[in-house]
Amino acid sequence: MTEYKLVVVGAGGVGKSALTIQLIQNHFVDEYDPTIEDSYRKQVVIDGETCLLDILDTAGQEEYSAMRDQYMRTGEGFLCVFAINNTKSFEDIHHYREQIKRVKDSEDVPMVLVGNKCDLPSRTVDTKQAQDLARSYGIPFIETSAKTRQGVDDAFYTLVREIRKHKEKMSKDGKKKKKKSKTKCVIM
C-alpha cells in the first residue's frame, strides 16, 4: 500500500485542523484551538488504489514558523489553505509557496490551493482571484467548507493525484537520464 505524506499549511484560523478532522473523523470542530502540530493517518481508496494518507496539520501562528522547514522537508505534497473571508490569509499563500519551493529546492512541488469556509456569506476573496492565482502557479484550486464537508475529500484526493503525477514524471525523467548515460565512448 502506497503511503502519501501530505502537509496542510496556511495562516492561523483558516480551518486547516477543521478540514483535516472532517476528512479523518467526519465531524466539524467549530471551536478554535490553535494547533502546534498534529499528525493523522487514514486509509482510503483513490482511483481504485488503496493508500495510506499521513497528514500533518501544522501551526499557522507566526511564533511556530521555525518548525516549518522541518515538516516541509518531509512532506510530499501540500494543501495551501486560505479562508475566503480573510484576504490576508490569501496573500500569505505566496509566502508559504515560496518557502516550500526553497526548502524542497524545487520549482515543481505537488500543491493544491484550497479556499476554505465557502459556506460563509462574508467572502472577501473572489473565486476568480483564487483561480487566477492557482493557474499562475500551475496547481489545482478547490473551494471547501469544513463545516458542510463540501470539497473536503476532493481537496485531499486531488493532492494525492498531483503527487502521483509528480512521481510518474520524475521516474520518466530518471529513465531518460539513465538511457543517456548508457551511451559509451570508444577510443581507438
Rank of each mutant, 00 (worst) to 15 (best):
H27Y: 08
D33I: 08
Q61W: 05
E31W: 04
K16Y: 00
E3P: 15
Y40N: 15
G15V: 00
S39C: 07
Q61A: 12
L19T: 14
E62A: 07
A18G: 12
V29T: 10
P34D: 06
Q22S: 13
A59S: 14
D57K: 01
E31R: 07
D57E: 12
C51V: 12
S39D: 11
D57T: 12
I24F: 11
V45Y: 10
Q43K: 14
G15A: 00
I21R: 15
T50K: 14
Q22K: 12
I46C: 11
G60F: 02
A11E: 04
T58Q: 08
G13I: 10
L19M: 10
E3L: 04
E63T: 04
T35E: 07
T2P: 07
V9H: 01
V7N: 04
V7T: 14
L23D: 15
V8D: 00
V14L: 06
L53S: 04
L52C: 13
A11Q: 07
G13W: 02
E3K: 13
A18H: 05
V14G: 09
D38E: 10
T35F: 10
L53A: 05
G10K: 00
G12K: 02
I55D: 13
D54Y: 03
E63V: 02
Y4G: 07
Q61P: 12
V7E: 03
E37G: 12
T20K: 13
Q22G: 12
D38H: 12
R41M: 08
T58C: 14
L56E: 15
V8T: 00
T50A: 09
D38V: 05
G60I: 01
E31Q: 08
D47L: 01
Q25Y: 01
I36T: 13
L6D: 00
E49L: 01
E62T: 08
L52E: 15
G48S: 05
C51W: 11
C51G: 07
V7C: 14
Q61E: 13
G60E: 13
V45R: 08
V9I: 09
G12W: 01
Y64R: 12
N26S: 08
K42F: 07
I36M: 09
L23F: 10
I46S: 05
G12R: 05
V7W: 11
G13S: 05
A11V: 10
G10T: 01
V44H: 10
I46L: 07
T50P: 11
E63P: 11
V14Y: 00
A59G: 14
T2V: 06
L53N: 02
Q25T: 03
V8R: 00
I21M: 14
V8H: 00
T2G: 13
Y4W: 05
V45E: 08
K5Y: 00
